[in-house]
Design a binder for these strands. Sequence first.
DNA 1: ATGCCTCAGCTCCTGAGA
Length: 257
Amino acid sequence: MKLATWNVNSLGVRLPQVLDWLASNPVDVLALQELKLSDDKFPADAFEAIGYHPQWFGQKTYNGVALLSRTPATEVLKNIPGFDDEMARVITGTVDGVRVIGAYFPNGQEPGSDKFDYKMEWLTALRRWVKDELTRHPQLVLMGDYNITFDDDDVWDPEGLFESIHCTEEERYHLRALIALGLHDSHRLFAQPPKSFSWWDYRDAGFRRNRGLRIDHILVSEALRPRVTACEIDKQPRKNERPSDHAPVVVEIAPAA
DNA sequence: ATGCCTCAGCTCCTGAGA
């Protein structure tokens, strides 16, 4: 079973690239973030035509998330239960016995800002809910655009970006707290090339110079960890014309013994 | 460099992203 996550920065713009990518990477589940379109504009037909069952939670202009799967998702949830949120950031479903959560974590803009405070509240609510969800669904994958780096290895310029957004100790505390629930960073279960990033700034030739951050993650539960056989960042779509600023991350999970 | 790029929208500038 292969699962992937990709922040597409507008599905309206990126739909042809997503369809192309799925044609060469027929994953079982793809979580999308930053659809930037309302539910009525979601291109469900285009995904159904290539054999995917879509679930979506859209929002005009900002945010918006979707789950595409080869077998239909069940027990679908939108956003974090018990956390009142005007933004469409989370979509969850059970696919082939695995609880899959696709999430677009808040950006946070700048430490000390209202948006940063919201990010912290959101992270606290997410953790409370995921902890609960794990008791019901031991086989769980939490993937998406986290907008947080684990440590300096995830940052192209750790000194220049020290304590800046996505790199603060406060954000990293929350990321470690998710790990402490019994989740594992798929990427670090395997040897990876140095300076592996999943996002590069559009400005200043960020991708060409590999000035990026690793902020898109796939966390797997303890029950799934022994079955994870590979995890990689696919930089190929970042080389497209008019690319998203994020690259897809893919994880492979072997069938249960 | 508060500046670099991209996207959406009450679109010819602004806010947001990261």
